[in-house]
C-alpha cells in the first residue's frame, strides 16, 4: 500500500467519523433543530477554504520573491482546492438559510464578500488558461493571487465590522457553543483540513507532471 493510499484511507475514515459525529453525537440545537447540523459541514468548509487561499497567497508571494516554478504550482493548486471548498460553502449556506431565515440568500457583508472571493479565485483560474507563456502566466497570476487574497480578511472580519444577517462567530469566542458541538466542529474541521492537504498534494503533482511533459516535449523537439 502506497503512502498516498494510506493517507487517502485516513482522510476517508476521518470524514466518515465527522459525518457520524455530526448526525449522531452532536446534540440537536434548540432553536433551529436538525437543520443546524449543516453547521458541521458549512463552517469548517468556509474556514478550510480560507486556509487554502492563505496557502495560495504564500505561494504567490514566494513565487514573486524567488521566481521558482514550484511556488506557482502551489499557488494554483491551493487556489483550485480553495474554490472547491468555497463552492461547498456557497451551496450549503442557502440550504441552511432557507429553513432558518426564510430566504435562500441575503446580500449582507459576509455572504457578498464570500461570493466575491469565489468569483476572484475563479477569475484567477480562468486568467491562467488565457496565457501561453509559462513565466508570464506565473507572474501575472501571482500578482492577481496577492490581490485576490485581500478579500480574505474582509470575509473573516465582515461579521464583526458590519451588522449582518449571518450569525456572529461561535468557534473562537467565548460564545455559548455546547462543548460536544465544539468537539464535533473541531473533528469536522480536522477532517476537512486533511482533505484539503490531500487534494492540494494531488493537484500539485499534476502541475509537476505537466512540467515534466513540457521538458520532454522540448527534448524531443531538440532532436
Amino acid at each position: 500500500m502506497t503512502k498516498t493510499a494510506v493517507y487517502t484511507l485516513l482522510v476517508c475514515v476521518l470524514m466518515g467519523l465527522s459525518a457520524y459525529a455530526a448526525f449522531y453525537v452532536a446534540p440537536t440545537e434548540v432553536t433551529m433543530g436538525l437543520v443546524q447540523r449543516i453547521f458541521y459541514l458549512h463552517a469548517p468548509s468556509g474556514m478550510t477554504s480560507l486556509a487554502a487561499f492563505l496557502v495560495s497567497f504564500v505561494g504567490s508571494v514566494m513565487y514573486l520573491l524567488t521566481r521558482k516554478p514550484r511556488w506557482d504550482w502551489l499557488a494554483v493548486s491551493s487556489a483550485e482546492v480553495g474554490v472547491a471548498f468555497c463552492t461547498v460553502v456557497l451551496l450549503t449556506g442557502p440550504i441552511w438559510a432557507h429553513p432558518a431565515w426564510g430566504v435562500w440568500w441575503a446580500w449582507d457583508a459576509r455572504l457578498t464578500s464570500t461570493l466575491v472571493l469565489w468569483l476572484l479565485y475563479v477569475a484567477f483560474l480562468i486568467l491562467r488558461t488565457m496565457m501561453e507563456d509559462d513565466d508570464r502566466r506565473a507572474v501575472v497570476s501571482a500578482f492577481f493571487g496577492v490581490f485576490a487574497f485581500l478579500d480574505v480578511p474582509l470575509v473573516y472580519g465582515s461579521i464583526w465590522w458590519w451588522r449582518t444577517q449571518h450569525p456572529q462567530p461561535v468557534v473562537f469566542t467565548s460564545a455559548g457553543l455546547d462543548p460536544t458541538m465544539r468537539k464535533v466542529f473541531y473533528l469536522s474541521w480536522l477532517s476537512l483540513l486533511c482533505l484539503m492537504a490531500l487534494l492540494i498534494r494531488q493537484r500539485y503533482e499534476l502541475e509537476a507532471s505537466r512540467e515534466e511533459l513540457r521538458m520532454l516535449e522540448q527534448e524531443l523537439e531538440a532532436r
Binding site: M15, A19, F23, G33, L34, V35, R37, I38, L41, H42, S45, A84, T87, V88, L91, T92, I95, W96, H98, P99, L195, L199
Partner: peptide, 18 residues
Amino acid sequence: MKNLDSVFAAYLIGWGVF
C-alpha cells in the same frame, strides 16, 4: 425530523463537490 431533507441535501451536495 423537520428539515432532515435539507441536512441530507447539504451533505450530499458538499461531499459530491469534493
